[in-house]
Simulated assay, not measured.
Amino acid sequence: MIEALILGLVQGLTEFLPISSSAHLRILGEFLPGAQDPGAAFTAITQIGTEAAVVVFFWRDIVRIISHWFGSFTGRVPRNDPDARMGWLIIVGSIPIVVLGILFQDEIETTFRSLWIVATMLIVFGIILGLADWAGAKRRKLDQLTIGHGVVFGFAQALALIPGVSRSGGSITAGLLLGYERAAAARYAFLLAIPAVFGSGFYQLFKSWGEPSVYGPLETGAATLVAFVVALLVIAFFMNYISKRSFLPFVIYRIVLGGLVMWLLATGVIQP
Results as ranks from 00 to 15, higher is better:
residue 247 F to W: 08
residue 217 P to H: 05
residue 57 F to E: 04
residue 36 Q to A: 15
residue 248 L to C: 10
residue 157 Q to K: 05
residue 235 I to S: 08
residue 198 F to R: 14
residue 133 D to G: 13
residue 248 L to N: 13
residue 6 I to P: 02
residue 89 L to E: 08
residue 55 V to A: 08
residue 118 V to N: 03
residue 80 N to G: 10
residue 28 L to S: 02
residue 223 A to T: 06
residue 193 A to P: 02
residue 162 I to H: 04
residue 211 E to N: 14
residue 251 V to N: 01
residue 169 G to S: 11
residue 238 F to Y: 13
residue 164 G to H: 03
residue 40 A to C: 09
residue 93 G to D: 07
residue 261 V to W: 04
residue 51 E to T: 08
residue 8 G to Y: 04
residue 204 Q to S: 06
residue 57 F to D: 02
residue 182 R to Y: 09
residue 39 G to F: 04
residue 104 F to A: 05
residue 246 S to Q: 10
residue 191 L to R: 03
residue 79 R to N: 12
residue 111 T to Q: 15
residue 211 E to D: 13
residue 200 S to H: 06
residue 113 R to E: 14
residue 134 W to H: 14
residue 200 S to W: 03
residue 29 G to M: 00
residue 232 L to M: 11
residue 32 L to V: 06
residue 117 I to S: 12
residue 153 F to W: 05
residue 158 A to D: 06
residue 187 R to I: 00
residue 243 S to W: 02
residue 257 L to K: 01
residue 158 A to R: 00
residue 194 I to N: 08
residue 235 I to E: 05
residue 260 L to S: 12
residue 69 W to R: 13
residue 149 H to N: 14
residue 177 L to A: 15
residue 58 F to H: 06
residue 201 G to F: 15
residue 60 R to S: 11
residue 155 F to G: 04
residue 165 V to G: 01
residue 233 L to M: 13
residue 71 G to I: 10
residue 229 V to W: 07
residue 85 R to H: 09
residue 205 L to V: 09
residue 80 N to F: 12
residue 23 A to C: 10
residue 95 I to V: 14
residue 248 L to P: 07
residue 239 M to F: 10
residue 62 I to D: 13
residue 62 I to R: 15
residue 257 L to R: 05
residue 74 T to F: 06
residue 134 W to S: 12
residue 49 G to W: 04
residue 67 S to H: 11
residue 198 F to N: 14
residue 113 R to W: 04
residue 96 P to I: 04
residue 155 F to L: 08
residue 206 F to V: 10
residue 41 A to P: 02
residue 244 K to G: 09
residue 65 I to E: 09
residue 230 V to Q: 01
residue 87 G to Q: 11
residue 63 V to D: 09
residue 160 A to V: 03
residue 203 Y to D: 05
residue 48 I to S: 13
residue 193 A to F: 00
residue 263 W to R: 15
residue 19 I to C: 03
residue 247 F to I: 07
residue 206 F to A: 12
residue 133 D to T: 07
residue 184 A to S: 12
residue 81 D to C: 11
residue 145 L to K: 06
residue 161 L to T: 13
residue 233 L to W: 15
residue 110 T to A: 10
residue 132 A to D: 06
residue 142 L to Q: 15
residue 196 A to Y: 00
residue 249 P to K: 15
residue 230 V to E: 01
residue 32 L to T: 05
residue 234 V to C: 04
residue 87 G to T: 14
residue 34 G to E: 15
residue 102 I to S: 11
residue 134 W to V: 05
residue 202 F to D: 11
residue 271 Q to M: 09
residue 193 A to E: 03
residue 145 L to C: 08
residue 198 F to Q: 12
residue 219 E to P: 00
residue 115 L to R: 10
residue 208 S to K: 15
residue 50 T to A: 06
residue 179 G to F: 01
residue 101 G to W: 07
residue 66 I to L: 12
residue 230 V to P: 02
residue 255 I to K: 03
residue 218 L to M: 12
residue 225 L to P: 05
residue 266 A to E: 08
residue 196 A to R: 02
residue 120 T to A: 12
residue 220 T to H: 01
residue 64 R to A: 15
